[in-house]
């Protein structure tokens, strides 16, 4: 693979974290325009840990994920009783406020005769961990995909667990879920924290991948994009948002020959796709059908036969 391709594939991996984070909240029926804030918090935190405090990379990533989770908890406490548009705009307000705070945030130390650290609107340059420690681009891509794989695996376990079922129940109807004994607020808070953790982790990876971050990267565009990924790829499974990212970045790269018309072509394609499949390519129905096809074939149990027989007769 050449460097450019590695760069694109790494980008797809990192952006997938934000998409998964937005997807997790979509499962509980809430739309967040603000997941980019946790991504930003993770990016700045892990950059500070490795580039300024000179601590190991793993610690930086862990700190990024932890601050992402903590911030999500803080925001989740007051906002999670809001619904729909009000929740969406509250998260938007929070995320934009965070972006502006990073524009005002200055914290620099001298290293190698040069200032390092977040410098307001100029951003945070020289997060040079991968160069200082000779991590090649391919190695870093493998780290990203290792973490992404682990996160996906965690999400799959989650979706099979009681907690995951509770997420989807609340997403369908929170009042009904509450009458079924689901503790709505704690479960939603858990979802928000997990989403914050995932976004924070992704942010840490992003900072080290690009070696610089600046507040402008984390504006509303990124947040709405990450929501769109879930919708394009499908809300039926955690692979959906991933597919969305691959389609978006893949399509953008492949429609490069449209040059100046790229966004016109791409925007139109997405709009048409959503008319055909309003819940994305891998929507719940398709996922369910695939699961059944996979599961049913090996062992048609006698009990099932009788039930089916009764229904047919």
């Amino acid at each position: 693979m050449d460097d450019h391709l590695i760069g694109i594939v790494s980008n797809i991996g990192v952006i997938s974290f934000v998409a998964l984070s937005a997807y997790l909240l979509l499962l509980t029926g809430e739309i967040s325009f603000g997941q980019q804030a946790f991504f930003a918090i993770g990016a700045y935190t892990s950059g500070i840990v490795t580039a300024m405090w000179q601590l190991p990379f793993a610690l930086g990533l862990g700190a990024g994920a932890a601050t992402g989770a903590a911030a999500a908890l803080l925001v989740g406490l007051p906002t999670l009783r809001l619904h729909g548009l009000q929740f969406a705009i509250a998260t938007l307000a929070f995320a934009e406020a965070v972006r502006i705070l990073f524009e005002l945030f200055r914290y620099q130390i001298v290293r190698d005769g040069e200032l390092v650290g977040p410098n307001g609107i100029e951003g945070f340059r020289n997060i040079r961990y991968i160069f200082e420690n000779d991590v090649s681009a391919t190695e870093f891509m493998l780290i990203i995909y290792g973490l992404l794989g682990a996160t996906l695996f965690g999400l799959f376990l989650l979706e099979r667990s009681r907690l995951g079922t509770a997420f989807r129940m609340i997403g369908e109807d929170d009042l009904l879920a509450a009458t079924q004994g689901v503790a709505v607020v704690p479960v939603k808070l858990t979802a928000a924290c997990l989403a914050g953790t995932i976004a924070g982790l992704g942010g840490g990876l992003y900072a080290h991948l690009t070696t610089y971050v600046e507040p402008a990267i984390f504006d509303v565009m990124l947040g709405v994009h990450s929501l769109a990924y879930g919708l394009i790829g499908g809300l039926g499974t955690a692979f959906g948002p991933l597919l969305g990212v691959v389609i978006d970045i893949g399509l953008l790269e492949s429609t490069r020959w449209f040059a100046g018309y790229r966004m016109i072509v791409f925007g139109g394609l997405v709009a048409v796709l959503l008319i055909v499949r309003p819940r994305g390519l891998l929507d719940e129905q398709l996922v369910h059908r695939i699961r059944r096809a996979v599961r049913r074939r090996p062992r048609p149990s006698p009990a099932n036969d009788t039930v089916l027989g009764k229904e047919l007769s």
């Binding site: 990379f57 290792g146 996160t151 695996f153 965690g154 953790t197 995932i198």
Partner: peptide, 22 residues
């Protein structure tokens, strides 16, 4: 919570990889 084991696993990967740097 559930993502924790996966996360620890990948931290291990990251540490092994970053340990090689000089």
């Amino acid at each position: 919570m559930i993502a924790v084991p996966g996360f620890l696993l990948s931290l291990l990967v990251a540490m092994v990889l970053s340990g090689s740097g000089l």
